[in-house]
């Protein structure tokens, strides 16, 4: 078993929903802190009511007042980010060394623009091999079922490329 990292993550709704659909939400337990803005928490509860009820998960719900600084507002407005995404990015301001987890391209673009590290569900799934939470065969099976088992939209050929790369990995 690997030692838990000291890394914190701030989650947008997408990765929580997608990882839960794939039965992999527990992978986030590997992080020291999993921070979820209240607005995101509500969004997840609305779309995937059972996801955050699992008692094995130690996620922290954080009340967030959305940042009103003009540069921040300019970035989030120009990319038409929703309230949850704005709240999650506001939360990142308090944890600039954390990783922002999102599967939304616009939110990811905003986070990069604001100088944050960003990853998504695919990154968490593949990291699980490196962190010995899953075998590569487990992850290949998950990737093969991704389109049927989750609402994460990825071009099938790209998924196939990832699977082929995993198959070649030692």
């Amino acid at each position: 078993m690997t030692i838990k990292t000291v890394l914190s993550v701030v989650c947008d709704a997408g990765p929580i929903i997608h990882l839960d659909e794939l039965g992999c939400l527990f992978l986030l337990n590997d992080f020291d802190q999993v921070l979820i803005a209240s607005q995101v928490w509500q969004e997840v509860t609305h779309h995937r009511p059972g996801a955050l009820r699992n008692s094995d998960l130690s996620f922290q719900r954080v009340n967030v007042n959305i940042c009103s600084i003009p540069t921040f507002q300019s970035v989030v407005s120009s990319l038409s980010l929703d309230i949850g995404e704005q709240a999650a990015l506001t939360l990142m301001q308090g944890y600039p060394d954390a990783i922002f987890l999102t599967d939304d391209a616009a939110a990811r673009l905003a986070a990069v623009t604001l100088g944050y590290r960003v990853h998504g569900t695919i990154g968490i799934l593949l990291r699980a091999i490196r962190r010995e939470q899953k075998t590569k065969y487990d992850v290949i099976a998950i990737l093969r079922n991704l389109a049927h088992q989750s609402t994460l939209h990825i071009r099938p050929q790209l998924i196939q490329e990832i699977i082929e790369r995993l198959e070649k990995e030692q």
Binding site: G120, R127, I129, R165, E169
Partner: peptide, 17 residues
């Protein structure tokens, strides 16, 4: 979209955190 996924693959497989 593709670039973001590829970044995730690299981090997932070869990152150090």
């Amino acid at each position: 979209l593709e670039e973001f996924i590829r970044q995730d693959v690299e981090w997932g497989l070869a990152g150090d955190d």
